[in-house]
Amino acid sequence: MLIVFMNQMSGADESGHLRSAQVWIGEDEGVWRLGWRNIEPDGEVLDDEWYEGNSWNELLRVYRHRLAMKLGEGFRPLIEGIFHEPGESAGKNLGVQKLQCYSELYGSEELYTELCAWRRRKAASGRKAPYFIASNRVLRLISAFVPQTEEELLQLPGIGVSKASEHGVEWLEMTARIQRTTTFPLNWVDAQLQEEVFLSWLYKQKEQKYKQELDRFRIRRTVLLGIAEGVSLTQLEERTSLSRRDLVEELEGLEKEGYDTEQLLQVELDEITDLEQETVWKAFEELGDTFLKPVLQRVYGQSPNGDEAGGTERLYERLRLMRIRFRREEPGKAKVG
């Protein structure tokens, strides 16, 4: 095997003992291999192979994910720059990340729990998804820095004038009951947050990010292979563990990127009569393809009965599949709606 990349890694364990390791990439007759080698103090070598296959793109995603895990455990590279992303951790962004790190490590769990309960009630009463009210990170920041005024609220990343005006009074009612030990402005965080603690937190964020990217890459590959084999959405559900709705969204994304999804569309729409397909097509031409509810009502009536087709959700699925074909074949007729 030809080693095309290797970097020496080192770091101390919880007891302070120095650890050594190597991360490497090799190639052997067109097969890529990726691995990690622990080098014990007594010279013993323990190998852990992370990847073996012919996809360089998959190897890179596995590399980023697994390396982020090791960096989160405290390992650091002998040669710097192997994990740099353009523009990351620079200027204002670095300050925001440190505030987020501090809030997740040292925030008040009691206040955070209270804020989450408030968000659930707010979301239920307004019939909105909780993240539309406030993200977990915003609630973490509030729980850690306990702002007492609207001016202090506005110093937290993710809280603008609109959010402060809409929810600030209720947030401040909760924080007023908490005795805080820190002050505003928050420029003290940079000095108080230990660099190694911050780096470990940062690499944990990377680990989660790269795990999602790897999962998405593998799901997309499975879907594309399934399309080539002529499988159905039901079969893809079993292969990917995604819902039919998520799979249709994946198809829409693939179509936008120029992939050919027609074979799967044909499998799914084969049971729909030519007359029904013509009616749907005409409705798209007349009503536009942005909003599906008017099309649904035009084709299936004001109170559509989708029992035989698997429910109204399945009718919407049919329309979304038909819309993929419509947008590909009649791009000039698509309307904003």
Rank of each mutant, 00 (worst) to 15 (best):
Glu151Gly: 15
Pro157Glu: 08
Gly158Ile: 06
Ile159Gln: 07
Gly160Ile: 10
Val161His: 15
Lys163Glu: 02
Ala164Ile: 02
Glu166Asn: 15
Glu166Cys: 11
Glu166Trp: 07
Val169Trp: 00
Val169Cys: 02
Trp171Tyr: 05
Leu172Gln: 01
Glu173Trp: 04
Arg177Tyr: 02
Ile178Ser: 06
Arg180Pro: 00
Thr181Trp: 02
Thr183Met: 08
Phe184Asp: 01
Pro185Ile: 03
Leu186Gly: 08
Asn187Asp: 15
Asp190Trp: 03
Ala191Phe: 11
Ala191Gly: 11
Gln192Tyr: 13
Leu193Ala: 06
Glu195Arg: 11
Glu195Ala: 12
Glu195Leu: 07
Glu195Asn: 07
Val197Asp: 13
Leu199Asn: 01
Leu199Phe: 07
Ser200Phe: 01
Trp201Gln: 03
Tyr203Ile: 00
Tyr203Ser: 07
Lys204Val: 02
Lys204Ser: 15
Gln205Pro: 02
Gln205Arg: 08
Lys206Thr: 09
Glu207Lys: 00
Glu207Gln: 14
Gln208Asn: 14
Gln208Lys: 15
Lys209Thr: 12
Tyr210Trp: 10
Gln212Val: 15
Glu213Cys: 00
Leu214Gln: 01
Asp215Gln: 15
Arg218Glu: 08
Arg220Ala: 06
Arg220Tyr: 06
Gly226Cys: 05
Ile227Tyr: 08
Ile227Ala: 03
Gly230His: 09
Val231Leu: 10
Thr234Cys: 02
Leu236Gln: 01
Leu247Glu: 03
Leu247Tyr: 07
Leu247Thr: 04
Val248Asn: 09
Glu250Asn: 02
Leu254Thr: 07
Glu255Ile: 00
Lys256Val: 10
Lys256Leu: 12
Glu257Ser: 09
Gly258Tyr: 01
Thr261Pro: 03
Glu262Val: 09
Leu264Val: 04
Val267Glu: 13
Val267Arg: 14
Ile272Pro: 07
Ile272Leu: 15
Asp274His: 15
Asp274Cys: 12
Leu275Tyr: 14
Glu276Cys: 11
Gln277Tyr: 10
Gln277Arg: 15
Thr279Arg: 13
Thr279Ala: 14
Thr279Met: 13
Val280Trp: 04
Glu285Val: 08
Gly288His: 00
